[in-house]
Computed example of a mutant assay.
Amino acid sequence: MASEEDAADAMPSHIDINDISKTFGDPAQLFQLLDKNNDGRITKEDLQLLLEQFGVPGAASNIVSKYIFQQLDANHNGIIETSDLANAGNILWNLLKKKQSSASD
């Protein structure tokens, strides 16, 4: 299980939060972007691939996607539905803020 601290530490400092915020700000659009095979389900692997597209490298995207998936899978059924994605942008934003504040300490 990935902790918030592990996920924040894994986030790269150079990531473009504005680009991610736009994408993660619309749950329906994000769901379509993540659901590459159109099966109506989002897995941790789908989320990891999207993070890699935004510049989060392999090992870091694995840790961050595990953490975000844990936070979003509200009913713990192993998949993310559209309604679960409403908070995805806030989770990433909080991880980046935590990363920045620990870097300045």
Rank of each mutant, 00 (worst) to 15 (best):
P27W: 06
V64K: 04
G78V: 04
T43K: 09
G40T: 08
A103G: 12
L85K: 05
N37A: 01
E5I: 15
F31H: 07
L85M: 10
K97M: 12
D19F: 08
E45F: 13
A59F: 13
K99R: 15
I15W: 13
I42K: 00
D84P: 02
S101P: 00
K22G: 01
T43G: 02
N38E: 11
D16E: 09
K99L: 02
L34Y: 01
M1C: 10
N37V: 05
P57Y: 10
A103T: 05
I15M: 11
E4I: 09
D73F: 08
K36I: 11
T43S: 15
E81D: 13
A88T: 14
I68P: 02
G55F: 08
K98M: 13
S61I: 07
Q53D: 14
F69I: 03
Q70A: 10
E81F: 01
S21D: 10
L30T: 06
K44G: 11
L49C: 02
Q71M: 13
Q32K: 10
Q29G: 00
S104K: 13
A7N: 09
S65D: 09
E81N: 12
G55Q: 09
E52M: 15
N87T: 15
Q29K: 14
G58C: 01
D6S: 12
L33P: 00
T82V: 15
P57W: 11
N90H: 12
V56S: 10
T43P: 04
E5Y: 12
N94R: 15
E81H: 04
F54K: 13
P12A: 07
F31Y: 07
F69L: 08
S65H: 08
L50P: 04
L49S: 12
G55D: 08
L50N: 01
E4W: 10
N77R: 00
K22N: 06
L95Y: 03
F54M: 07
D9L: 15
D35P: 02
P57M: 08
P12E: 04
T23I: 10
E4Y: 12
D35T: 02
T82P: 07
Q71R: 14
L95M: 05
T23E: 10
S61V: 07
I63Q: 03
L95G: 04
L33D: 08
I68R: 05
L96C: 11
A74F: 02
N38F: 09
F69Q: 06
G89M: 06
I17T: 12
F54C: 08
P27V: 02
S104W: 01
V64G: 05
L95S: 08
K22F: 03
K36R: 14
Q70H: 10
E45T: 15
V64R: 04
G78M: 04
E45W: 13
F69R: 07
Q32E: 07
G78E: 03
G25V: 00
L30V: 07
N87E: 12
N18K: 12
N62C: 03
K99G: 04
S61P: 04
H14N: 13
K44A: 12
E5V: 15
A103I: 05
L34I: 02
E52T: 11
A8R: 09
E81W: 00
L92G: 07
Q71S: 09
I63G: 01
N87I: 14
R41Q: 14
F24N: 06
L47N: 09
L51M: 14
S101C: 01
E81I: 06
N38K: 15
L72Q: 04
A74H: 11
